[in-house]
Nucleic acid binder design. Structure first.
Lengths: 181, 181
DNA sequence: ACTTTATATATCGAATTGATATTATGCATC
DNA sequence: GATGCATAATATCAATTCGATATATAAAGT
């Protein structure tokens, strides 16, 4: 399941441009599948070349033509086949955790900064989840609700874990001594 | 913080070969920063070319020479600079969640299979975390313990969330009707 | 006897990232 | 009335990373 396939999936919801898809990658998909223009536009070109989507160019004034893509029957078939993969993976690439692995090489104040920034990032996601819940979520398919709930649950756990364990990393010597005996 | 920098960090623990580092990427780092030979060997070559590590070739019988890399003072300085990034990112790329977004296009039995496989994967991680806790963890730096605890907490949340919400995706029609009235 | 696992390196095409470029409108702000 | 920023929209490119494959041997399990 690469960017191409996810774009194809998004297009089952109706025709859209690369720009439209990017907005979806930045909002509802952001917490588990981010993609930039450098992935999206080549993906759409390739899908178009394989006949899995069709492109209609809509002229506009002042702006570049809008290229609106629509999934074809062949594209739908291809997507269904792709969804049959019984073991889709779930990968994390965390520079944050990698940094924390080497916390013993860092200055305590820098550790604190990194942690605070991470907490802010998490808070931003939580705000987003809250917004989704209050607005548009009613007409989303169940799968989408499941995925959003998943993200929300993980964000909550990360927040709690970091708050409850940050002292392990940035222990003032006094605290260490006090706990030691 | 790319693969190069993480390799450099791992080498602060003592000299090691690419093969050794790969084992670490497969065990204690697997849940948040996986890397394959295709990334590790070029990373070590590049680090060597920049003088951030030094390479000693150790001849062996039957097997290729072991190339043991050791971090240099310049490498240590470079690592400390890299660790000063105040906002290291934390990214997820989940083909599992992407698949679940399109669950309404899938057959219920396929959804079940995907979920069961994901739960097995999580269980494998949990087994790994348990092993780490019982064995070697005592002499790890605090940062490493923090990171392992983080992974364990996330795995637990994923497991619970999936078990408590899988019915949303694979509702037999009967259950739906029963709940509906 | 056969197959898998472990030791060890290396490479290559394909996919992805992150940054940058282009062009135009509209909306604040100074 | 000018300057700058956000939004709309596409596109490209170098650098990085992924996943698979190749090579070679020994040990250990079936």
């Amino acid at each position: 399941m690469d960017v191409k396939t996810v774009c194809l999936g998004m297009l089952t919801d109706g025709p859209a441009s690369g720009y439209d898809l990017k907005k979806q990658f930045e909002s509802s998909f952001a917490h588990f599948f981010a993609a930039g223009y450098g992935s999206i536009y080549p993906a759409l070109s390739s899908l178009s070349a394989s006949g899995l989507v069709e492109c209609e160019e809509v002229p506009q004034e002042g702006k570049p033509d809008r290229k609106v893509y629509e999934i074809t029957d062949e594209g739908r078939q291809f997507l269904l086949k792709a969804l049959e993969n019984p073991s889709p993976c779930h990968k994390v690439r965390s520079e944050f955790l990698a940094t924390m692995c080497f916390a013993h090489l860092m200055r305590p104040e820098d550790i604190q900064t990194v942690i605070n920034n991470r907490l802010e990032d998490i808070a931003r996601y939580q705000e987003m989840f809250r917004q989704f819940e209050s607005e548009e979520m009613c007409d989303w398919p169940e799968g989408m609700k499941f995925v959003l709930g998943f993200g929300k649950a993980i964000a909550g756990t990360m927040q709690t874990y970091i708050n409850e364990n940050r002292h392990l990393l940035a222990d003032e010597p006094s605290a260490k001594v006090a706990t030691g005996q």
